[in-house]
């Protein structure tokens, strides 16, 4: 049997390089760019004698020192908890509300001005409000993370549901699908692409929310650690803290991509995330 689908792939037409070779080149380019940046940083700082810019070697040494002591794990754990709880709650509420408003024209019309109003508020700017309301502890950061991730998940779920082809819904109903079946087998898969985009886009915002919250007022967490390093002019610790943050975002995105790959194997085109 001729594989027609294979004929449609550009690779088979001899235009592009074979896929594996291309990926290899991309990876090599990325690695050399990273190396150039690190070497450039190292060399530039030692040549120009810039104070407080630190150097990759010093940052790496600091990082090693930090992870060999228990203190940093306490900070990481606090920030992780804020992110996980806030993100989880935000995602759940965002999914549910996005789904309900996405399916109900009436509620969507009725709540539109309120949502647009909230949409235009920079969520991070509300962090001081939550510190006042909820205090210096973890709950104020959880609230900021919640708000930041809730809106991204909500808007993307909402627009994903709005974009569902109603013809598919009607066909499924005519084929005898009950409403629960139509939701789980047609509406959710049809919107899955956009929903996942929202979930993924929300991750860095959740991290930003937690860290900003900690900058504004806290006595533990990675944000507090970075702020403290800044106030004591400890540049290597500052960068080490930021690298740890990047690691968290990176790991979370990797996990979500993995989950997405398991759930959406048919993906043909990429959607554009609704941003805040």
């Amino acid at each position: 049997m001729v594989d027609l689908a294979a004929l449609d792939r550009p690779a088979a037409k001899g235009r592009a390089r074979p896929r594996s070779m291309r990926r290899y080149y991309v990876l090599m380019t990325q690695l050399s760019l990273l190396l150039t940046l690190i070497l450039g940083w190292q060399w530039g700082v030692s040549e120009a004698q810039l104070p407080y810019f630190s150097r990759p070697t010093l940052v790496a040494a600091k990082l090693m020192e930090l992870i060999s002591q228990p203190t940093i794990y306490r900070h990481i754990w606090v920030t992780l908890q804020e992110i996980l709880i806030g993100y989880f709650l935000g995602a759940v509420f965002g999914l549910v509300l996005g789904f309900v408003l996405g399916r109900s024209q009436f509620l969507s019309d009725a709540l539109q001005p309120f949502i647009i109003g909230l949409y235009s508020i920079p969520k991070i700017a509300l962090a001081p409000v939550f510190i006042v309301w909820l205090g210096l502890g973890m709950s104020s950061k959880v609230a900021v993370v919640f708000l930041a991730s809730f809106f991204l998940v909500f808007f993307n779920t909402y627009s994903g549901l709005r974009a569902v082809n109603e013809e598919l819904v009607r066909l499924a109903r005519l084929m005898g699908a009950s409403w629960p079946q139509t939701i789980s087998r047609v509406i959710l898969p049809a919107a899955a692409d956009q929903i996942f985009l929202g979930l993924k886009t929300a991750v860095p915002y959740a991290v930003i929310g937690a860290v900003i919250g900690e900058y504004i007022g806290s006595n533990e967490g990675l944000g507090f650690f970075i702020l403290y390093a800044s106030q004591t002019y400890d540049a290597p610790a500052l960068f080490a803290g930021i690298i740890l943050l990047v690691g968290i975002v990176f790991a979370a995105n990797l996990g979500l991509s993995h989950l997405e790959g398991k759930l959406i194997r048919w993906k043909t085109s990429s959607s554009q995330a609704v941003q805040i």
Partner: peptide
């Protein structure tokens, strides 16, 4: 109902599409 456009479920294979009405 067979519509003007094929309106297949893009997340299901050909087999999955044909099985859909039987499954529900």
């Amino acid at each position: 109902f067979v519509t003007q456009d094929s309106n297949l479920f893009p997340w299901l294979t050909a087999l999955g599409n044909v099985e859909f009405p039987l499954a529900v």
